[in-house]
Design a protein around this nucleic acid. Structure first.
Lengths: 158, 158
DNA sequence: TAGCTGACTTTGGTTTATCTAAGTCAGCCG
DNA sequence: CGGCTGACTTAGATAAACCAAAGTCAGCTA
């Protein structure tokens, strides 16, 4: 595996899933909007205010998130109000939650306030705190130091 | 818990671990440099070339990553060359790998090339593919839909 | 039907991220 | 001791992200 890594060169740039993911969620405001969506925020100005971004930015990013299929618009109606659209996470958006959990976990460990984290994410069924963990398909817990990188089927050689 | 989320308003902005983490790694090039570091890249121009960014950007981001303690400079010497510094992941940097694994996993699922992913991340000990998973402290696997958000100790009320 | 409200859009300007191209500089090699 | 090489830095320019303030507009409510 070491040889593989030493020999490789610019192939990663061409087909890297991390880079592709970052084209969709590779900026601060997008990830914070997804955080809000995961907390149940659904309305335009709640998104803008709670994330702390301006309305034009919120509008552009939310539009992009809908176009990319991470959020969907769903009509709803509050009593005494007219029909509106609310933004709801799709399955594609929900599957990004491990990224957010992992980011929060890192922030809790390395950049937290003295008072501790402001939120706690629990397992709905049992109330225990939830973490993002690495695990292999053989069922072992894996630490960051135990990762090996190998060529995959989509590897493009120079 | 629903009441909690409905009542909360601008508290999250002030002390959010995700936002804090994103201040450090909230841009594309930083995360891609960390990807490279996790693949074992150590030298300046390898970083720049493999990530596909210009040298000025690579220099600035690497400097920032060292200042933030995610990478450290370690002197090394190749035979017939002078002493240089190489960039190596610290523990603080390694603990971000779950974020990268989760991002790659999402990219593999939702934005992959037809040919499949270009790399495969394995458990060093057993060779099985590694995934980022959500798990609660009671030991249950948790799906993104089973997450509950609750106030934490550092929660600031408006 | 006039007004209010939520959900944006428009305008104009600043900051941040990025690029290319060229320059610096330290120290081993010959 | 003079040149080469790797590791940056500087300069100048463009593109992307963001902001505040004001404007638009649809459709309930009164």
């Amino acid at each position: 595996m070491t040889e593989f890594l030493d020999q490789r060169d610019d192939w990663l740039t061409t087909n890297c899933s991390i880079a592709r993911a970052l084209e969709v969620v590779g900026n601060r405001s997008t990830l914070l909007l997804l955080r809000e969506a995961s907390f149940g925020t659904r309305r335009f100005d709640d998104f803008a205010r709670r994330v702390g971004i301006s309305e034009p930015v919120a509008a552009a990013r939310l539009k992009r998130l809908v176009a990319d299929g991470l959020l969907e618009l769903r009509p709803y109606r509050q009593p005494g109000q007219r029909t509106r659209d609310e933004y709801v996470l799709t399955a594609k958006g929900q599957e990004l939650l491990p990224v957010l959990v992992a980011l929060r976990q890192w922030g809790d460990s390395w950049a937290a306030d003295e008072a501790g984290p402001s939120v706690r994410v629990e397992h709905h069924d049992c109330g225990a705190v939830v973490h993002a963990r690495l695990r292999c398909e053989a069922g072992h817990d894996v630490t960051p130091g135990e990762l090996d990188v190998r060529p995959g089927p989509g590897l493009l050689r120079p």
